[in-house]
Simulated assay, not measured.
Amino acid sequence: MEPHTRRAARGATAKLIGQKVLRPREQVEEKIRAAILSGELRSGERLPSEAELARQFDVSRTTVREALRSLVSQKLIDKTPGVGGGSFVRSVDHQSLGNLLQESLHNLLQLGNLRVEEVAMLRQYLEVPAARLAAQHRSDEDLAGLQDIVERQKTISVDDPDVPDLDARFHAAIAKASGNRLLASFVHALHRETEPVHYLDLSPEVGRTTVRQHQKIVKAIAASDPDSAEKAVNEHLVYLREHVLSL
């Protein structure tokens, strides 16, 4: 066997023992991140002080401060100033996930990497099955919440400042009633970021049509009729998208 052939053979079978060497700041960051994601540090729990962390990791306070700053940017911890403040593990439940997704979508839309139409179409792909699941799994509390929102929508004018929030709450409540928390997080993020009513010409007629469609959706969910719920929410979302595109 030629020398270069032997070298290639040895390289092909070389045992992998190498691992990326982290700088002190990265090591501190990785250890704390692992403790959060494993549940060792619980949601809302206060981390030790910077001085104590520096002692435990045997690094400078500057190194700890840089690691904590990175974890804040990753939305894993919050830093609260003043007496009683400090670094706290951020809630990582499904609602927080929705907020994180919304922030990411916002950045992508602002940078022009995504079009609003793409997000609106994805909403439809998620909200139609969400309505079907809501008809199958909704609780009495879920139904009461949806009915309260629609009753409020019936009593306000299209220029009321509460219109966007009520619309977002309505769609989020349907996703929540589906029983799938991850689905609810995605719907929350998609709806809050696109805020469809801001793109509509909210004439009184459009407002009345939207509320009627909401009532139809709630009626199907109340009857535990998944086929009707799917059809009703699909008609509603198609109406909204076509109305936006017509403008």
Rank of each mutant, 00 (worst) to 15 (best):
H4M: 10
T5R: 12
R6S: 03
A8F: 08
R10P: 00
T13V: 15
L16C: 00
Q19R: 15
L22Q: 10
R25G: 01
E26N: 07
E29P: 01
E30S: 14
I32E: 04
A34T: 09
A34H: 06
I36F: 02
S38P: 02
S38Y: 07
L41Y: 13
L41I: 12
E45C: 06
E45R: 06
E45V: 10
E45H: 11
R46Q: 15
P48A: 11
P48C: 10
R55G: 08
Q56H: 10
Q56Y: 04
D58L: 02
T63V: 15
R65H: 14
R65V: 06
L68R: 05
L68C: 05
R69Q: 12
R69M: 01
R69E: 13
S70L: 09
L71H: 05
L71G: 06
S73V: 08
Q74N: 09
L76V: 03
I77P: 01
T80P: 00
T80M: 11
V83T: 13
V83L: 11
G85H: 12
G86Q: 06
S87Q: 00
F88C: 08
V89I: 10
S91V: 08
S91F: 02
V92C: 02
Q95A: 07
Q95L: 12
N99F: 09
L100I: 10
L100R: 15
Q102G: 15
E103V: 04
S104M: 13
H106A: 10
N107E: 15
Q110E: 15
N113Q: 15
N113S: 14
N113P: 00
A120N: 02
A120M: 13
M121C: 00
R123E: 14
A130E: 08
A130G: 07
L133W: 01
L133K: 10
A134L: 08
A135H: 04
H137L: 08
D142G: 04
L143E: 09
G145N: 14
L146I: 03
Q147I: 01
I156C: 08
D160S: 13
P161R: 07
P161A: 12
D162K: 09
V163F: 04
V163N: 03
P164I: 09
D165Y: 03
L166Y: 05
F170E: 02
H171I: 03
A172D: 03
I174W: 02
I174V: 15
G179N: 10
N180K: 07
L183A: 11
S185Q: 10
S185D: 10
H191P: 00
H191M: 14
R192K: 13
E193F: 02
E195F: 01
P196I: 09
L200Q: 04
L202P: 01
V206H: 07
G207Q: 06
R208T: 13
R208D: 15
R212G: 11
Q213E: 15
H214N: 07
H214C: 04
Q215L: 11
K216H: 14
K219G: 00
A220K: 07
A222D: 14
P226Q: 08
D227P: 01
D227L: 12
S228E: 14
A229M: 03
E230L: 02
V233F: 03
V233E: 09
E235L: 11
H236W: 04
V238L: 12
H243M: 11
